[in-house]
């Protein structure tokens, strides 16, 4: 890693990171602010959800409204945060490699005594730092929101909330890794952006579609996002070990799907472990 490059890249991108971090923190505040109103009508809301087709509730992560983190895991971690982080992963990884190659500023970096691998590693560190920053701000905002807006009147499990953020981080560590690999392998900014965007949002759509209908549930198996289940964490399914293993890049693990309120009962889900962390390593090799 090159300290000078890391420092400079963080400086250039800090404003963007802070914008997303602030936006995410603000949104989570908003959720906490809304929650007391929702908590009053938990039963009525649960009834409404129960009248919807099962797939819809699954797809839009309606995880129940009986605790603050269940509400947040559904409404924020299940949808909006995923979109925000997907955009950050695709955009930032394209900016850090393909754009610099395309525009020619990479030539300046390579003209200094710094190897290609070191430059790619440094840029990858910037990407991971950005994700950490955004999720760190989100986590802190969650605890602050709990302290200021909820107090002791409403149920909130801090440990699970942290796990929720950790899962989101690991998930997007993998997603950003794929986007970074694409970015490092292309010399054209637009192509890198298009390709990594298509992969990431393609994954997202496959997961969403798979959740909507039981007949096409297999689609989820193709998507890395099927590994990300904020509902499971708040539902007390702990932190699925497979997910951790997946983040480490293990091969394939077969998990039995369990009833969690949003999962279909007894459906066996073949979960492919993500190739992404190793992809992140590979991309530096590719660049070499």
């Amino acid at each position: 890693m090159s300290a000078a490059l890391y420092k400079q890249m963080m400086r250039v991108n800090l404003k963007g990171f802070l914008n997303y971090a602030f936006g995410s923190a603000f949104y989570i505040f908003l959720m906490f602010w809304l929650y007391p109103g929702i908590a009053k009508n938990t039963e009525a809301l649960d009834d409404i959800v129960a009248t919807m087709p099962e797939g819809v509730g699954r797809a839009f992560s309606l995880n129940g409204f009986d605790s603050a983190e269940a509400f947040i895991s559904g409404e924020y971690y299940g949808l909006i945060l995923v979109l925000i982080l997907a955009i950050v992963s695709v955009q930032l990884s394209t900016q850090l490699m393909a754009r610099m190659i395309d525009r020619g500023s990479m030539a300046y970096l390579l003209s200094t005594p710094t190897t290609r691998v070191r430059i790619a590693l440094t840029q990858a560190c910037v990407l991971v730092s950005g994700l950490l920053l955004i999720l760190g701000a989100t986590t802190l905002a969650g605890f602050a929101g709990k302290a200021w807006l909820l107090g002791d009147r409403y149920a909130f499990d801090g440990g699970r909330f942290v796990l929720l953020n950790a899962a989101a981080f690991l998930m997007f560590f993998a997603v950003a890794g794929i986007a970074f690999l694409v970015s490092a392998a292309s010399s054209d900014e637009k192509r890198a952006l298009g390709l990594s965007g298509a992969i990431v949002f393609g994954f997202y759509s496959l997961d969403l579609l798979g959740k909507l209908g039981d007949g096409i549930a297999w689609m989820r198996g193709l998507s890395i996002f099927s590994l990300y289940r904020p509902g499971d964490i708040v539902g007390g399914e702990a932190f699925p070990r497979a997910r951790l293993r997946a983040a480490r890049g293990d091969r394939v693990s077969l998990l039995r799907g369990r009833h969690t309120g949003i999962q279909t009962e007894g459906s066996a889900a073949l979960i492919r472990s993500s190739p992404a962390p190793s992809a992140a390593r590979n991309c530096t090799k590719r660049a070499a």
């Binding site: 500023s105 030539a107 300046y108 003209s111």
Partner: peptide, 9 residues
């Protein structure tokens, strides 16, 4: 090195 097409950060 001076590149032909200068692109700074």
């Amino acid at each position: 090195y001076l590149p032909g097409e200068i692109a700074f950060i």
